[in-house]
Design a protein around this nucleic acid. Structure first.
Lengths: 204, 204, 204, 204
DNA sequence: TATGAATGAGTGTTCATTCAT
DNA sequence: AATGAATGAACACTCATTCAT
């Protein structure tokens, strides 16, 4: 019964989140288990449950990192794109790049939206809100600049874009099982068509 | 031991699919088990595996019924709507009505798009294709009639609409767990905004 | 993945009950686990759950054996005791002897009466009823023969004797933890005093 | 880090017992945990283990309060009942009323009699003894007054009544799970039949 | 063709107790 | 005297799939 060194709670918490992150990258959400996290860290299972209410809570915490990363993608793409609807396109498109660069995180985000998922993790909600605010602000700005129709509601648009882009990307992810010859679609092409339509649909 | 009557394979197959359908309606995809199907039908478990490769295959067959139903919704809404983009809107919107009228089927369709899902069921693919053809044809027609931009690719658009609409509806389904104040969004309102944007995006 | 020989369900069921019985004798109710049963029998865990709904159900089935044994004690003591209230005394006293001869079974019976315990096992209920009937019949007979007051209700008396005798025996079982010098009470003596009082209390 | 005020050991002890009492009332014995006590008090877990050997020890101390309460019930019912066996009846019956008025305490008392329970708590023993003395004294008095048979041993009777009444009340508590049609027994009726029999059994 | 008994790895969660600081 | 982070064994239950008959 060797007692592990006592760490500050916040350190330990972070340590667990990091370990969960590593495990997630390795095995994906579907095979993610607390056992694996615990084994990786070399700590007792109970310790995890001292810091988190449930497995889903741990995942929600990891998702905060994931969503932050996504927010980064948004911000960078906003900065590095020309004015006009191109900017909106770029932002949406960046979520596609994100889904390719961070496939495991993307899986996680999808997983979090399943109705079975339950968590009261605060960070996850906070970062979700950040994303929401970022995008809604972007739309507001585009409206002011006249790039976007006046009757577009930023919050609604936010939901709309989130829902549709997640949907498109999930579709891309699962297409093998879905439509016979969809193997051949060029993912990039579909994404571009999607962005084109969405953005045009918002134009004045 | 009473021998079960040996039915023609295709009858037996259909029998199993119907039973699976009943079970699905009763318990939903998440609680769907082969055990329940078998119990309902009063046949042996092995029999199911004689006719289907896996549980997912059974579900895929059920989904053929589900998708057929969806196709009906499409056709009806096409017939009952005025010419112009209104028709396209009506078709897309009908998938929303479908998701409300056949919640269990909708759950199933979503489930089939999960990356874990694997099946090679033929019927499912066939009906998927029917849907695809129907919608692509609709787009083609709209193009000819000049309601839709010329550079819109029907097949691509088909994927695009499928992906985005599923995404939006999933979002609606899971919003409780996702965004803080999204409880308040009016589902209908979001759907309408979505359809509006998509259809405008396709307009010339 | 060696497949164990397929047994008739009823044989397998009995096999599990017997194994559970063995495990119970070995470790007692409090340490009784399905894992131990499974290990003892060398079968898969799932097999147990094919035959029983829950751990408590398995225990309830074992208790049927236990209660049957108790019923035997009742019957034997009835036969081997003189007429009159002596007979009633003998029956009650036999439950004490039972609790000594089958301490593990007795523990089990007590355990089954805990409010946390849940089971829908039929056998257990059936044998419980047999016991109830046996004792109630005995009381009816004693009434007819005039050994017992006329206003004694057989069913009520049945509950009364069951409750009190279980209580006394539990007390005996746990006295170490309860009263300082109770180590010294002669168990037998207390039981006899108990039976004496109860039986006198029923006399005309 | 704020140092908790160092209280006198006896104060601290009492503080913990009181907290445990509060927790007990709130959640019941089965869900009683040291964690909850500690959380309620805002002290460290180790502190509890400085003052008490084990969780069961803490509960045993709480039981001292519970048993004291029971003693009060005994005393009050003794004072407020007419002379004769009615008094004895009243006292026994008061334990039933107690079990209804202080269900959580009653649960606790039952729990303490489980064989798994271990504690060497002194107070619990002391109050147990008080109860024992009270009841034994009562019996002695009844003997002197001639209400009770001469060959009744007060201490033995004490155990007898304690054991049987606990048994009856436990039976009442668990009857749902035990006998099929016992739902219908009137608790009060059974208790009265019980008291009647016991007391008659002690009469000369 | 049909049967159906058997498999067994997989996993989230609890909580009394310890002991280094 | 007080802390509180860490422990870790324990356990019930699921269900898709197999294969000997």
């Amino acid at each position: 019964m060797i007692q592990k060194k006592h760490l500050t709670p916040s350190i330990r918490r972070q340590q667990i989140i990091n370990a969960a992150d590593v495990v997630l990258q390795e095995v994906g959400v579907n095979d993610f288990t607390i056992d694996k996290v615990v084994e990786y860290l070399g700590i007792a299972k109970g310790t995890v449950y001292k810091y988190f209410e449930s497995k889903d809570d741990v995942l929600a915490e990891v998702s905060a990192k994931a969503l932050n990363q996504l927010l980064n993608y948004f911000k960078l793409s906003e900065q590095n794109s020309p004015e006009g609807l191109e900017k909106t396109k770029a932002i949406i498109m960046s979520s596609y790049h994100y889904s390719i660069d961070y496939a495991r995180y993307f899986e996680l985000i999808i997983y979090l939206e399943r109705p079975e998922f339950h968590s009261f993790a605060q960070n996850h909600k906070k970062v979700s809100l950040d994303l929401q605010v970022f995008f809604a602000d972007h739309i507001k700005e585009q409206k002011q600049k006249g790039y976007v129709r006046n009757d577009i509601d930023p919050l609604m648009t936010n939901y709309l874009v989130w829902g549709t882009s997640m949907g498109i990307m999930q579709f891309l992810d699962s297409k093998k099982a879905f439509l016979e010859n969809s193997e051949n679609i060029q993912q990039q092409e579909l994404m571009e068509a999607y962005v084109e339509v969405i953005v045009r649909g918002m134009a004045p």
